[in-house]
Amino acid sequence: MHCPSCNAQDTRVIDSRMLVEENSVRRRRKCDACETRFTTYENIQIQMPLIVKKDGRREAYNREKIMKGLNKACQKRNVSTDQINQLLNSVERSLLEISRTEVRARDLGEIIMDRLKELDRVAYVRYASFYWDFKDIEEFVYGLKNKLHSVKSISDKGDKRDIQH
Rank of each mutant, 00 (worst) to 15 (best):
C3F: 06
P4C: 05
N7I: 01
A8R: 04
A8F: 10
R12K: 15
R12E: 15
V13A: 14
D15K: 14
S16G: 04
M18D: 15
V25W: 04
R26S: 14
R27C: 10
R28I: 09
K30N: 12
A33F: 11
E35K: 14
T36A: 13
E42I: 01
E42F: 03
N43G: 12
I44L: 08
Q45F: 07
Q45C: 07
L50T: 08
L50Q: 10
V52W: 01
K54F: 03
G56A: 03
G56E: 00
E59D: 13
N62L: 02
K65E: 11
K68D: 07
L70D: 03
K72N: 10
Q75E: 13
Q75M: 11
K76G: 03
R77M: 07
N78Y: 06
D82L: 14
I84V: 13
I84R: 04
N85S: 15
V91P: 07
E92Y: 11
S94K: 15
L96K: 06
I98M: 13
I98G: 05
T101W: 00
T101N: 11
E102C: 08
E110I: 11
R115V: 00
L116H: 01
K117F: 13
E118H: 05
D120E: 05
A123L: 04
Y124P: 08
V125Q: 02
Y127K: 00
A128Y: 03
F130E: 08
D133L: 04
I137D: 05
E139Y: 04
F140H: 03
G143N: 09
K145N: 15
N146Y: 00
L148W: 08
S150V: 02
S150T: 14
I154V: 10
G158W: 06
K160V: 09
K160E: 13
R161H: 12
R161N: 12
D162K: 15
